[in-house]
């Protein structure tokens, strides 16, 4: 997805605030979503395919919630399996964000480390690493992820591993380029002259100065990782049903749209859009503020 970035600092601040709010909210839901959900997000209720209550009734229904005798309304309706869409939508960040954050963190650590080494040392093994990265990046990420998950088996761990493999080259390339531009700078020469070992030069002097672009990229990668997680579930290669996961919810709801059931897929679809927008905004704002 692309986000328009304007030059005015105020626009950048606005993006930062919006991104931070969305990321904060999703992080909160990832931690507390299943706890505050009115229904078990994986348990079928007694009704199926029920639309959300009319918007005009929401204030009354909300106030009624203070009476413990009254059952919680299905704010976002109920899907074809009898699952409460609201509870699932707010519980899904735990799955989506956890997978996306973990995969991005692994990719970041592996990519930055290897990228720093590849940028600083000229060796056949670093060339081999770059060619391997080229090969990995030459395949469409989604197709590659689908194949890897199909081969390894359908589980959250395997999705994380597949994403780590596919996203690491991004960080390798970014960090390598940055390190290559830094390795002949004066402060590196100075460190070398004072007898600092090459390894310490890389990790104590060069790498901290080369992290900016990779850090900004991380936020954008999280957004893409959320999309990829959802996409894999949408095509049946992601987490198992009925795990609350936005892509899976959209896939299950998609076949109901022709019957007029818009709610099972609309709300998770909106949640994905907002979340990816949030991470992308944050990434762009950070890039503008602390970027190259």
């Amino acid at each position: 997805m692309s986000v328009a970035v304007h030059d005015a600092p105020a626009a950048g601040d606005g993006l930062l605030k919006i991104g931070a709010i969305i990321v904060g909210l999703m992080t909160f839901l990832a931690i507390f979503g299943p706890v505050i959900a009115p229904y078990d997000p994986t348990a079928a209720t007694d009704t199926v395919s029920t639309p959300p209550p009319p918007l005009i009734d929401w204030p009354r229904l909300f106030i009624a919630q203070f009476d413990p005798e009254i059952p919680a309304p299905h704010w976002f309706g109920v899907d074809a399996a009898g699952l409460d869409v609201f509870s699932r939508t707010i519980s899904a960040p735990r799955t989506d964000l956890l997978i996306a954050l973990t995969a991005t963190a692994f990719s970041f650590v592996i990519g930055v480390t290897l990228g720093a080494l590849a940028g600083f040392f000229r060796h056949w093994s670093t060339e081999l690493l770059m060619r391997a990265s080229d090969i990995l990046q030459s395949f469409p990420v989604f197709i590659s992820a689908m194949i890897l998950v199909a081969l390894a088996g359908r589980s959250g761990v395997n999705i994380v591993l597949a994403m780590t493999l596919l996203y690491s080259p991004i960080f390798i390339r970014l960090t390598r380029a940055e390190v290559m531009s830094l390795r002949n700078r004066g402060f590196v020469e100075a460190a070398r002259a004072t007898g600092v070992s090459e390894r310490n030069i890389v990790f104590r002097y060069v790498l901290p100065n080369a992290l900016g672009p990779a850090a900004a990229q991380a936020s954008v990668t999280i957004g893409f990782a959320i999309l990829l997680t959802a996409g894999l579930s949408f095509v049946g290669a992601g987490v198992r049903p009925p795990t609350p996961e936005w892509g899976l919810m959209i896939a299950n709801g998609a076949s109901q749209i022709v019957l007029g059931d818009w709610w099972p897929s609309l709300f998770p679809g909106a949640a994905i859009s907002i979340t990816v927008f949030g991470f992308a905004s944050l990434g762009h704002a950070l890039e503008r503020r602390y970027g190259r």
Binding site: T42, A43, A44, V48, D79, A80, A81, G82, L83, G236, R240, P241, P242, N252, S255
Partner: peptide
Amino acid sequence: EATLGPIATMLQTALREIGVPVELD
């Protein structure tokens, strides 16, 4: 999935209620 998925979810819920931790596959 469109036919059996919802039914499998209902069965999973019923079996979990008696203590059998079923996953869908």
